[in-house]
Design a protein around this nucleic acid. Sequence first.
DNA 1: CCTCTTATTGCAACTAGGTTGCAAATATAG
DNA 2: CTATATTTGCAACCTAGTTGCAATAAGAGG
Lengths: 126, 126
Amino acid sequence: MISSRQTQSVRLVWEVFDRSDTAYSVVELVQMHKGSMNKTTVYRILDRFEKEGKLHTFLGKNGLKWYAKCHNCSSKKHIDIHPHFQCNECGKVECLTIDVKIPKVAKHHIEQANMLLLGQCDECLI
Amino acid sequence: MISSRQTQSVRLVWEVFDRSDTAYSVVELVQMHKGSMNKTTVYRILDRFEKEGKLHTFLGKNGLKWYAKCHNCSSKKHIDIHPHFQCNECGKVECLTIDVKIPKVAKHHIEQANMLLLGQCDECLI
DNA sequence: CCTCTTATTGCAACTAGGTTGCAAATATAG
DNA sequence: CTATATTTGCAACCTAGTTGCAATAAGAGG
């Protein structure tokens, strides 16, 4: 870990993820820190967290980028994936703990798989 | 099927999908028809095709929207999904014919699932 | 605790995908 | 052939995300 300085901004962004296990979109995070830092800074800090393996990213239903804390990202190297869930009502996103086997495809080399489940979350199920 | 007029533009866009089974991003389609129609028109025609069930859409690796011809979209109603593949080298996208079971998630109602596999396609595998 | 180097930040401008409102054009029912 | 409702072009707009550069501030080493 050569670079990565402990700036005020870095600490603030990390705190959000440290406090809960929710996934956050960049849009939310920019909004959340408006006033204390520039949106470019948020983007760059998130990029760094991702490179450092502290956060993983995935795309939500509208192609928006979401970030969530990594628990065992590097451990099970690309054999299984954990899918993500997004609620069609409230938009909330969750990491699911179940594993999904990546299917084999003839004449293709699969490196990575993304699975997004859409529906209603527990709170929106009435 | 109340609306949907057979205009020149509608015919041109449909021809592209009719000729091959490839998936196309909106960006490609807009580029392809630049000169003969406006980008807004392309977007709107694709929207209509989707609503009419002629095309299905999904998001590629950068959150770009892709369109592909529907073969049996309405037949197997949300029990299985067919995943999509995108090549990390050339960017090409394919519909895969394999079925993936949608996992059950406690206290959630799953309506839909998207799976995107990433890697190298047959042509890019050397 | 000071200094120097280098990472980080703010800002403003920019890119790209996608959308909207409205007037003009054009399918098609009758 | 006409009337009407759909479709189109255009220009302006929106939002997510990026870039270049000068200013700022960690923190390593003295």
